[in-house]
């Protein structure tokens, strides 16, 4: 067996983990499984691409990397826009269901419909042809132990680590983070205690959308950009969020890395064509053995 699957798995796992943070937060605070979350990944990538394409300069490669200073700017713009998109969809769709107290499952169906519409809209505007941020070729550097990684890949691992630490600090050390946890524990009590629940919900969408856009830009840089990129990640996202334990941000990133590693291992041992089934196998095992996930609390 080749140990290279560790590098491939960690990189795929970073993208899954960043997406799964959004899934787990939506699930813990808004209490439904959002099937449209994968589309935020794809929209983030296409929005960043639109910014990069609109500016005719700034993509001359910096140092060992394949992209120029325009890409980080585009990524930040895409994160803000995708966060805004998530808030917009909540306002158009989910807020009305919350207001009339619809069953959770109605929200899930609506998110399924929104997912299809958002994805097909991308396909309509950009067609289903894969596109790239840059055509620069990168040579993988040896890391020792027979492992190889490109400079872009190493940078993205670092960026993921920074983002995860930032989200963790936001949730544990700031007022809005405490309010988010309060709403997830008990929304009625939180509201009575003076927490602005609507502001908390906006923050959740914005944060989830922005992190998904980050995952999308990474996937676009390291793999490719296509309308189905987010939808294909949806099952791994759910598997990671449930494996890590719903509501736990460290759990989501841990789950993401584990799912990514299992996928890379399966590609090497079983074959790349079965990659998409790994999420389902993990999901089944978690639900059978430990439904509350690794870092989750058992239901009371």
């Amino acid at each position: 067996m080749n140990a290279q699957f560790i590098v491939d798995g960690l990189i795929a796992g970073s993208m899954i983990g960043l997406g799964a943070i959004g899934v787990t937060l939506t699930y813990a605070i808004l209490r439904f499984a959002n099937f449209a979350h994968g589309e935020f990944i794809a929209w983030g990538a296409y929005l960043a691409l639109a910014v990069v394409a609109a500016v005719p300069f700034g993509m001359v490669p910096i140092g060992p990397f394949s992209f120029g200073w325009m890409l980080p700017i585009a990524a930040i713009a895409a994160a803000l826009l995708t966060g805004g998109l998530a808030i917009l969809i909540d306002w158009l769709l989910f807020a009305s269901f919350r207001r009339r107290g619809s069953a959770t499952i109605i929200m899930v169906i609506a998110s399924f419909g929104a997912s299809l519409a958002l994805r097909s809209l991308l396909e309509f505007v950009f067609t289903s042809k894969p596109v790239y941020f840059t055509r620069e070729l990168q040579i993988a550097m040896p890391l020792g132990g027979g492992l190889r990684a490109t400079p872009d890949q190493l940078l993205m691992l670092g960026v993921t680590a920074i983002l995860v630490i930032a989200v963790h600090l936001l949730l544990t050390r700031t007022a809005i983070g405490r309010q988010m946890r309060a709403v997830s524990e008990n929304p009625v009590l939180a509201r009575l205690a003076g927490v602005d629940v609507r502001r908390v919900i906006r923050t959740v969408w914005c944060l989830g959308g922005a992190l998904a856009a980050g995952a999308g830009v990474m996937a676009g840089l390291l793999v490719q950009i296509r309308p189905y990129m987010g939808f294909d990640l949806l099952l791994p996202l759910f598997a990671a969020a449930i494996l890590g334990g719903i509501g736990s941000v460290p759990g989501a990133i841990l789950g993401g890395l584990l799912v990514g590693l299992c996928e890379a291992l399966a590609v090497q041992t079983v074959g790349a064509e079965w990659r998409a089934a790994v999420g389902f196998v993990i999901l089944t095992l978690v639900l059978l053995l430990r439904p509350q996930g690794i870092l989750g609390k058992a239901a009371t």
Binding site: A33, V108, F238, I242, F280, L283, T284, L287, P291
Partner: peptide
Amino acid sequence: DYLAITTFGFAV
């Protein structure tokens, strides 16, 4: 909604 996620994975 765990059933929803599981059936989705089943179809994939």
